[in-house]
Write a protein that binds this DNA or RNA. Sequence first.
DNA 1: TTGTATGCGTTATCAT
DNA 2: ATGATAACGCATACAA
Lengths: 335, 335
Amino acid sequence: MGRGPTSKDVARLAGVSQSTVSYVMSGKRSISAETLRRVEEAMAALNYQPHAGARALAGSRTNTIAIVMPFASAYDAGQLMAFVEEFVLAARVHDYDVLLVTAEEGIEGLRRITGGRQCDAAVVMQVTAQDQRADLARTLDFPVIFIGVPEDTTGLACVDFDFEAAGRLLVEELADLGNTRLSVLGWGADSVDRDYNYIGRFARGVTGAAEAHRLPVDWHLAPAADGFAAVLDAGLHPDGGRTGIIMTAGLSGGMRALALRGLVPGRDADVVALCTEAEAEEQVVPLTAVSTQPRDVSRMVAERLFALIDAGRPAQEGVDIVTATLVRRASTGRA
Amino acid sequence: MGRGPTSKDVARLAGVSQSTVSYVMSGKRSISAETLRRVEEAMAALNYQPHAGARALAGSRTNTIAIVMPFASAYDAGQLMAFVEEFVLAARVHDYDVLLVTAEEGIEGLRRITGGRQCDAAVVMQVTAQDQRADLARTLDFPVIFIGVPEDTTGLACVDFDFEAAGRLLVEELADLGNTRLSVLGWGADSVDRDYNYIGRFARGVTGAAEAHRLPVDWHLAPAADGFAAVLDAGLHPDGGRTGIIMTAGLSGGMRALALRGLVPGRDADVVALCTEAEAEEQVVPLTAVSTQPRDVSRMVAERLFALIDAGRPAQEGVDIVTATLVRRASTGRA
DNA sequence: TTGTATGCGTTATCAT
DNA sequence: ATGATAACGCATACAA
């Protein structure tokens, strides 16, 4: 593997000193038009690419951002991909590359990456209420942005979707449609155990709005939703009431449970969901839904991160919330 | 942002020279038990992490692999994620990190990453028949593995799923079930235009097997599959014949088209698919299908790549094929 | 078995 | 406006 041209080679070809080449790249001092031209020509002629390692060593910036990803998680793959794509594109605009770290490496992964100066900042996804990585970040003096909201956000920069509003919007939609009780097919015990904060916030949004509208709610955990099936079998609209359905996790299972009983969303019951737009639209009956917007989250994270990096400040404390909006589709009567 | 401890600091604390610390890490010369212990203690005490940039500069290895990903593509997000996860895990086993590059950067992205010595090797996904990156790789003297098979594989290392066998298996399954003609809902013009080789290989597999069994085939491009809908409306089994259905792209659209007409896979027609296992299983009627195995591909790529890296040889020419297998589910009569 | 010294390719501080 | 030169932190050839 050939060693590749260095800035010294460029300098020689352009007939200038090596430091001049460096200054041409950084733009940190004024260069005469003539010199600039010769250096740029030489760089092009040699197909010169600065050595990233040498840069990181001398300049103590890597132009790399690490993103700690929860692969085998409750997250939808499409969402994750959308988030990552958007983030990588935003990073490239600022001339940054993206290093992938699995959440499986846990706190050690963060330590390794930051300690080894492989990146200038990190994004940590899928944050739990009691997240050890939050504690580490506080001691780190290193820009980290969290996606999700740990219980104690002191000294942390967080971004998240407004799950509480999402819960509220879905309940209000069903209430407006005249439903008198709610059945929720939601996250299973495994997710709750791992203490994903957003599940609690969503539940709080649902509960709050349901109480305000005096609607009783029964919860069922996906995917082992025997209870949910029982509700369907017992009849959705007993005693002249009307049961509205909210689905979060276990969407395909829930839709299948309906289909197997010949129940059509929008005709036999109002069904709303918290899911991706793609999921909402690819159902046999497209779903009225609040969709998390991974690209919006991604853009907000990138914006905030590069503001930090460019300013050189430590991560500014605070939680940024991405707005939730409901889109009506055929699964609710009045679409 | 503090500078962090260096190997010099470790050396001082352990009462040895800096080079000894380095040799402890690399294991490239024998160290007395006593020295080893003191150095390791010092490293632990200081929470020492070697500076990645300095390492790359001095050792000319980055311990990083770039993976060039096709985000907004015909690829399924779940497949991509599975591939990436598996690869990152494999990479960590060999003490490598993974850098993400978008295919949107095209050939320049590859050039930038390899030229800047940000990685020791690269994996290029979603390769087209006439892929410029293949030409670049041939001139690069740098380990690159392609996922997908360009037309000219001279000097390239490629790994891919056996799409031709996939097509054959699906046709044979339908033939064995007594179908006398085939209807294929497949990739749309956009994918074909971009010349994804695997589409052609799949089609070849279908065509070859269909000819061998003397089955007529009609093709419909997803998602604008008006022709497919017309076939359904015209009646699937005219003239005492029997039409078997193969779905590749546009699966959800195809299933919806069936559902809207009250057609149930496995009852009214045999339906098979080339899709992910998750997709096959989450349908109302689970699908008999050949599934690409992203994790198998990933493992094969990783295995081959690290063999190259460890051996220090240039990428060994040749195409590795990941076996295709069919799994029977309820969408074909005899499940 | 261990220490000394050099170089990797940049950035940035002195000079001029 | 430009050139020398000293770090940056590690790997490794050379000495002992």
